[in-house]
């Protein structure tokens, strides 16, 4: 029986939805013991939700100075988590490849000199092997991790949630760490993303150069709102100033894996595909029936996005 730890992520006091797929993976079939590690101050009401997805033990990681919450240094958070993994004899630590997950998991791996693979598409817990993209999604590498604990971050939305009820025990762990005081978070400011994280979105409506102007992105926002989704953009759209970099999809932007990706006025370059290739269903709306994306998507609509998109938005309402 293996002890599988999961780094639980919260936003504004709520558990992120992305946790549940990872917990389902951790639960597996092999009867693992699943530990949920919380670095924040999440209240006791997370017990119910975490129990639903098969957590055996909830560990609230704290430092002697208090709770290493998001306002303290990520260095301290990672150090505290590293100590907790050792204290509980964790074999594998899983997390998501969100901005937070990538940073904390990599800090922990460096701290423990432990093997780590981020942005995994598949994880084989029993064999210690994972699959991930190499070369901008053109190839997939199978990687063997040697060492204990080993650490893996899953690409968001790449594992389905399957409930599996348990009654988790809630433990508190005080990590013996000292703050070296060399790295401090001074604040957070709103960037340009509009508060939505596209990497977590299950539906994305994305626009490219074909959208033509910043104000035309409203058409995409309207459609995305109907679908409960988020808006993305190609690099050409970002570079032209139509959309903020925070929502860029692709090689030099975000990697997304939504259930549905609707690309409007995007040609489908290799670098764009690098960021959305693993979407379940891809729809393209493009004037040019021979644009690369039209040959590599599930449903290609040949037409002018300014004519098609409003009709789609309208139809989704009814």
């Amino acid at each position: 029986m293996a002890k599988i730890g999961v780094l639980i992520e919260e936003r504004e006091g709520e558990l992120k939805k992305t946790n549940f797929g990872i917990l389902s993976l951790a639960r597996g079939e092999a009867g693992n013991e699943v530990y949920a590690f919380l670095l924040g101050e999440a209240g006791t009401d997370c017990r119910e939700l975490l129990g639903e997805f098969g957590v055996d033990k909830i560990v609230m990681v704290k430092t002697a100075a208090g709770c290493p919450d998001t306002n303290s240094s990520p260095e301290i958070q990672a150090l505290a988590l590293s100590k907790a993994l050792e204290a509980f004899g964790i074999d594998v630590l899983l997390g998501s490849s969100s901005a937070l997950g990538k940073d904390i998991l990599a800090r922990v791996a460096a701290q423990l000199d432990a093997p780590l693979v981020l942005d995994c598409l598949e994880i084989d817990l029993a064999c210690g092997q994972v699959r991930k993209s190499h070369f901008s999604g053109r190839t997939t590498a199978t990687i063997r991790l040697t060492g204990r604990p080993w650490i893996a971050g899953l690409r968001q939305n790449s594992y389905p949630e399957t409930p599996n009820r348990r009654q988790p025990a809630v433990l508190e762990y005080i990590a013996p760490v000292e703050n070296k005081g060399r790295l401090a978070v001074k604040g957070v400011r709103a960037g340009t993303g509009g508060g939505v994280d596209i990497a977590e979105a299950e539906v994305i409506v994305a626009g490219g150069r074909g959208v033509g102007e910043a104000k035309n992105f409203q058409l995409l926002r309207d459609c995305a709102a109907r679908l409960g989704g988020a808006v993305g953009a190609s690099r050409a759209a970002v570079d032209a100033g139509y959309a903020p970099h925070a929502i860029q999809v692709g090689q030099t932007g975000k990697t997304v894996s939504p259930r549905l990706y609707i690309a409007c006025g995007i040609s489908g370059s290799v670098q764009h595909f690098a960021g959305m290739k693993t979407a379940k269903t891809i729809v393209a709306i493009n004037k040019d029936k021979d644009a690369p994306i039209m040959l590599k998507c599930n449903y290609a609509l040949v037409g002018d996005l300014f004519e098609v998109l409003p009709v789609l938005t309208e139809a989704l309402q009814s």
Binding site: T142, K289, K296
Partner: peptide, 25 residues
């Protein structure tokens, strides 16, 4: 010994061409 060892590398085929719709909006 490597901690992380690439043991296989496989090409990811392009996504297959799907349905093309060409009609009124």
């Amino acid at each position: 010994g490597p901690l992380m060892d690439v043991i296989a590398l496989t090409a990811v085929p392009d996504r297959a061409r799907g349905k093309v719709l060409c009609d009124s909006p």
